[in-house]
């Protein structure tokens, strides 16, 4: 498939796209013989924020449509009707509630984070207190992970119960200005309620998977009997296709939302610090660091400021990645300078 690089962030888009899939800036020169495109407009964080949150909500709406559609098809295929929907919702919600109320503690202990005392880590506490003044947020609890890999994450279901964890490597390898950029990104996750957002999305993903699984089983249990006439057969076929593709589709939407929220947090961090250079320099340094993070796994990878497990190059489309390519993030930040 022919691809075209975005002039702003460098992301490789399918040649047919008019606007960049990642940063939404127009792709120049896609039509042969078109007039010279206007220079890319200077971007500001207000515009970045509103476009990013709009994108998130569009994705959420697509998600809800998918869930409703799957639930309806499952009900039809299994012959149980709306009962299937209720069952799926109940299971999905139960698991999500547990994640919602105890998730932050589970994540912190899984990554080996230890609470940081103010007199032991004065710079960390100072920087976070500064950012609290800038954002009007209450001070989150601060944790340090004893690992040489520079990385950080935020968790907690609302700003009053938020926690921010940074690695020892981050504190040692980054300058004060770069550290401020990273912590501003984490505080932005807290302020944008990204943890809550991720939980809601998690509920929807789980529900889709459960419904599909359940619809599939009950159809097989009934021995693949046809319901009534040709209309019923078409419906069952449709439900089967859905049962196979809906879980995959829901994962793709979840990843797209995660990437969108990362960009939103980058833009919000610039709103707080008014200094895109600090975060850009920090991302560059984190990306160049060879040390690996021991406590990270597939369940926690999406939380970190830079994905600790895999990094995709800028020329891959990275559909299943939780983070946008780091070069693209740096280029977007630099376009705000």
């Amino acid at each position: 498939m022919p691809r075209v690089a975005c002039p702003t962030c460098g992301y490789q888009n399918p040649a047919s796209y008019a606007a960049c899939d990642l940063c939404r800036s127009p792709l120049r020169g896609q039509a042969a013989g078109a007039a010279a495109p206007p220079p890319a407009p200077r971007r500001d964080f207000y515009g970045e924020q509103s476009s990013n949150s709009r994108q998130s909500w569009i994705l959420m709406a697509a998600f809800v449509v998918l869930v409703v559609f799957v639930a309806w098809a499952t009900g039809e295929a299994s012959g149980l009707g709306p009962v299937g929907l209720l069952f799926g919702l109940a299971f999905g919600t139960l698991g999500a509630l547990l994640a919602y109320y105890a998730g932050d503690k589970m994540v912190l202990s899984a990554s080996g984070a230890v609470e940081a005392a103010p007199d032991r880590e004065p710079v960390l506490h100072n920087i976070v207190e500064e950012l609290c003044l800038a954002s009007g947020l209450p001070k989150p609890r601060l944790y340090v992970i004893e690992s040489a890999a520079p990385n950080a994450f935020a968790t907690g279901r609302d700003p009053a119960r938020a926690s921010v964890a940074v690695t020892r490597g981050l504190l040692q390898k980054l300058s004060r200005e770069e550290l401020q950029g990273v912590l501003a990104h984490e505080m932005s996750h807290v302020r944008n309620l990204d943890m809550r957002f991720a939980t809601i999305v998690g509920i929807l993903v789980g529900t889709v998977a459960l419904l599909c699984d359940w619809g599939w089983r009950s159809w097989r249990f009934r021995g693949g009997r046809r319901s009534s006439g040709r209309g019923g057969a078409v419906l069952v076929l449709l439900a089967l296709v859905l049962a196979i593709f809906a879980p995959l589709a829901s994962r793709l939407i979840q990843m797209a939302i995660s990437r969108r929220r990362e960009l939103l947090a980058d833009a919000s961090a610039v709103e707080l610090t008014r200094n895109p250079g600090g975060l850009a320099a920090a991302l560059r340094r984190i990306a160049a660091d060879p040390a690996g993070l021991e406590g990270a796994n597939r369940a926690t990878q999406h939380l970190f400021i830079v994905n600790p497990l895999k990094s995709y190059g800028i020329d891959s489309s990275a559909l299943l990645s939780t983070h946008p390519p780091i070069e693209a993030r740096i280029r977007i930040l630099e376009s705000m300078m």
Binding site: V123, N126, E129, L133
Partner: peptide, 20 residues
């Protein structure tokens, strides 16, 4: 160096409080 960190932080706090 301790005082310098405190004053750097205070300068930032003043700047952020002013921004807010």
């Amino acid at each position: 160096s301790k005082l310098q960190e405190e004053l750097t932080s205070t300068e930032n706090r003043i700047a952020f409080a002013r921004q807010f």
